[in-house]
Amino acid sequence: MNFNFSEEQQQLRDTLDRYVRKDYGFEKRRGIIHGDSGWSAEVWAQLADLGVLAVGLPEEHGGLGGGPFDTLLVMEALGRGMVVEPYLATVVLGAGLVARAGSEEQKAEILPAVASGDRRLALAHHERGGRYDLSRIETSARRDGDGWVLDGHKSVVLHGAAADTLLVSARTPSGLSLFLVDAGASGVTRRDTPAQDGHRVAEVMLRSARGDLVGDEGAALPQIELALDHAIAALCAEAVGGMAALIEATVGYLKTRKQFGVPIGSFQALQHRAVEMYLHAEQARSMSYLAADKLGASDAAERRRAISGAKVLVGNAARYVGQQAVQLHGGIGVTDELAVGHYFKRLTMITLLFGDVDHHLAQFGEAMSA
């Protein structure tokens, strides 16, 4: 497999890295997450101006026609800056679903607005008690004239309060289906909650809320599974970016913190720990590349093996790198004023999102024995 990036991809990476370092510093991020909305409309507009929101969308609908590796580069850069704006929820999950399953009319209406930053999306799928079982859905939808009416309760909707449009999964007579629901419409109630990592999640209640069917009735589960595989691959790339930033901060600290009159980085035992951090991060990078590559596999089982394998290895690496970074910084590693603890929280949340290490290890074992 050739993982060499094109000149355009290198330019995308460099542009985003410069933006994160120059315009999305840690103090700015702290101000954003403590604001009322938990994200910045100004930053969102800047990402749109840079073309970031259009990277993974089809060219015929206002996008740049990029693939999984372009999304990987974006997510890695966003991971370096711990960017809290709803890129994963809107572009990877929401717009990805519309692009693959929506009608031409839905694509033409929604995707250009996502690319320009004028519309934000969120996938409302998971429910209480469902854990990682994607088919365990109790929200229902019934026909009402030419449309559908939905009733149910969705939990942990990523950036659900920031969304203009929700993609809601619900049971219909033919099986699991997907619907577009206006987030501000009658019958939709959202309760916004800050998560431990600074991102926002929402509880979404639907009471006779009207929705428009996306794709064929009863055919949503494979599309949702594919969308979540794309999201997991994107999260793996984000974790790689976060680990790289943690290693950079930790090595810098080891070079400047002194004990007994010398930098603690001169102690061989600490050098070995820093090297181990780097090795774990590089293994995670390789697996994130493999996951991105396998998103295009025609065999769904092959794709899921790669995704689960990446989630396991990246999750273990993120935990190791995060723990070492905190320990090597000593007591200040867990203070709110230092970025290290915030990276560790985000890496921990990434490890849990869409299936923890134990879940994906079991999935990988089942896939290998099938």
Results as ranks from 00 to 15, higher is better:
65 G>S: 03
305 R>W: 06
212 D>V: 13
142 R>M: 11
20 V>C: 08
32 I>D: 04
39 W>L: 05
336 D>H: 15
226 L>T: 15
265 G>V: 02
106 Q>F: 14
25 G>V: 08
252 G>I: 11
359 H>E: 13
86 P>C: 06
179 F>L: 12
286 S>C: 13
50 L>Q: 03
95 A>F: 04
132 Y>K: 01
297 A>Q: 15
58 P>Q: 05
228 L>P: 11
182 D>I: 11
35 G>F: 10
91 V>R: 03
83 V>E: 11
290 L>P: 03
122 A>N: 07
307 I>K: 04
215 G>C: 00
208 S>L: 04
189 T>C: 08
302 E>H: 12
231 A>R: 03
82 M>E: 13
5 F>V: 13
97 L>M: 11
124 A>I: 04
185 A>S: 05
337 E>Q: 09
4 N>K: 15
46 Q>G: 08
221 L>Q: 10
348 T>Q: 11
73 L>M: 09
117 G>F: 05
24 Y>I: 08
285 R>T: 14
54 A>D: 02
244 A>V: 01
145 G>P: 00
366 E>H: 15
245 A>S: 07
316 N>R: 05
305 R>Q: 08
65 G>Y: 04
196 Q>Y: 10
362 A>R: 12
207 R>H: 15
122 A>D: 06
258 K>F: 03
45 A>L: 01
296 G>P: 05
163 A>F: 11
319 R>A: 12
334 V>R: 10
285 R>D: 15
193 T>K: 13
101 A>C: 08
140 S>N: 14
252 G>S: 14
45 A>S: 12
133 D>I: 09
276 E>D: 11
12 L>T: 00
273 R>H: 14
230 H>N: 05
237 A>G: 09
323 Q>K: 12
285 R>F: 14
150 L>H: 05
69 F>R: 07
149 V>K: 06
338 L>K: 09
250 T>M: 01
80 R>K: 07
266 S>V: 14
259 Q>W: 10
111 L>C: 12
210 R>A: 13
351 T>N: 12
365 G>P: 00
256 T>H: 08
309 G>P: 02
75 M>N: 02
84 V>Y: 05
82 M>W: 11
124 A>N: 07
154 K>C: 09
185 A>H: 12
108 A>M: 07
350 I>K: 09
117 G>Q: 11
145 G>Q: 07
103 S>R: 02
47 L>R: 00
134 L>T: 12
108 A>F: 07
281 A>W: 01
74 V>C: 02
121 L>V: 00
356 D>M: 07
358 D>I: 07
342 H>R: 03
183 A>G: 14
296 G>L: 01
129 G>C: 01
351 T>A: 09
332 I>S: 14
209 A>F: 01
192 D>I: 06
315 G>Y: 05
161 A>E: 12
50 L>W: 07
47 L>K: 04
1 M>N: 10
297 A>W: 01
34 H>R: 13
58 P>M: 04
276 E>G: 07
134 L>W: 02
326 V>K: 13
127 E>F: 04
306 A>T: 06
111 L>I: 02
232 I>R: 13
60 E>Q: 05
264 I>V: 09
365 G>F: 10
108 A>T: 10
30 R>P: 04
77 A>L: 06
58 P>E: 14
196 Q>E: 11
324 Q>L: 03
